[in-house]
Design a protein around this nucleic acid. Structure first.
Length: 300
DNA sequence: CACATGACAAGCTCTGACAG
DNA sequence: CTGTCAGAGCTTGTCATGTG
């Protein structure tokens, strides 16, 4: 770098006062030091930022041109300094989660986090696994909670919680009376599923290998709640994460079906960038996530 | 002409790089 | 770890010049 922030400060102060002595006073330095600093800035780039009419300093066209940029630079430097100073106390964080995790798990952890750090700003973005992974890799998110298994050279990917997809129907369906449902019966049913590309759909497709092409997919929806409503109204059967269905099963508004020929077990993962500095906020969030997992008798 | 102001010179302090 | 050196940036003192 061919200039210092001090030189930029001198430039801005001199531009403000049109007087190097006052600029120097404002910056708590001697007139000579300010004069020297400004001269060095100009000579470093072989430019003139002021017209010298005798002893008068008048900001010239080029000086006016870069003044705004210089002020922005100093503002950003001050903001950076503040962030660095407040780092020890900062617990702010940006979390990304898939739809199921975001709506049914992360929100509970977030509530605990806010209880522990009432002044911290926490943002929760919901997206699919691919989107969340991209954003963590690009440093747009601090932590990602995802459903699908991913691999990325820049990411730390840790198994978090065990999960399981559950096939379900409405209480009036004939299937609800059966002790278990066979592959043949699954093939005959009308399915209401998450859209292709979602972590849930990916897990479903994997679990249904062999009979996937025989399935009668009636409807594909982007929202778990919409799928639950459609199944409740008798449009067909669905398959979603058990974390999204527990309440409905308790209310008996939906019925879980046993599918012994299919293995719907899967895992949730926590992802962070390998080069990401883990601030106190991020470390606490990760701790809370793993405590939550342990408490709910899942991953350890 | 007195005063204000910018620029220059000399010397000091601090810091980082480097060698022993 | 310590001593040395170079460079950056600062202050003090001084000079030149514009202004009222």
């Amino acid at each position: 770098m061919k200039y210092s922030l001090k030189q930029i400060e001198v430039f801005i102060a001199t531009a403000n006062f049109q007087n190097i002595t006052l600029a120097a006073e404002a910056l708590n330095m001697s007139q000579s030091a300010a004069s020297e600093s400004l001269k060095n800035l100009e000579s470093q780039f072989d430019i003139k930022l002021f017209d010298r009419a005798g002893k008068r300093l008048q900001l010239n066209d080029f000086g006016r041109l870069i003044r705004k940029q210089a002020e922005t630079l100093i503002d950003q430097a001050k903001s950076l300094e503040l962030s660095l100073q407040q780092n020890q106390l900062s617990a702010d964080l940006n979390i990304g989660a898939t739809l199921s995790i975001g709506n049914y798990l992360a929100i509970h952890i977030l509530s605990e986090f806010k209880g522990k750090f009432p002044t911290a700003k926490a943002a929760l973005s919901v997206g699919n696994t691919t989107k969340i992974t991209e954003q963590v890799a690009n440093f747009e998110l601090d932590v990602g909670l995802i459903e699908g298994e991913v691999s990325h050279p820049d990411l730390n990917i840790r198994p978090w919680m065990d999960d399981e997809l559950v096939v379900f129907c409405d209480p009036k369906s004939e299937l609800s009376t059966l002790s278990y449902v066979s592959d043949q019966q699954l093939s005959k049913a009308k399915w209401i599923l998450r859209e292709a590309g979602s972590g849930t759909r990916q897990a479903f497709d994997n679990a249904m290998q062999g009979v996937l092409h025989e399935l009668n997919i009636e409807l594909e929806l982007q929202h778990t709640e919409a799928i639950k409503r459609a199944v409740e109204s008798g449009m067909g059967i669905g398959c979603l994460s058990k974390v999204t269905l527990n309440d409905a099963f308790k209310r008996s508004s939906l019925i879980a079906l046993k599918t012994p020929q299919r293995d719907f077990k899967r895992k949730f993962y926590i992802i962070t960038h390998k080069d990401k500095y883990l601030s106190p906020g991020i470390r606490n969030w990760l701790e809370l996530c793993f405590e939550y997992a342990e408490l709910h008798n899942t991953y350890s």
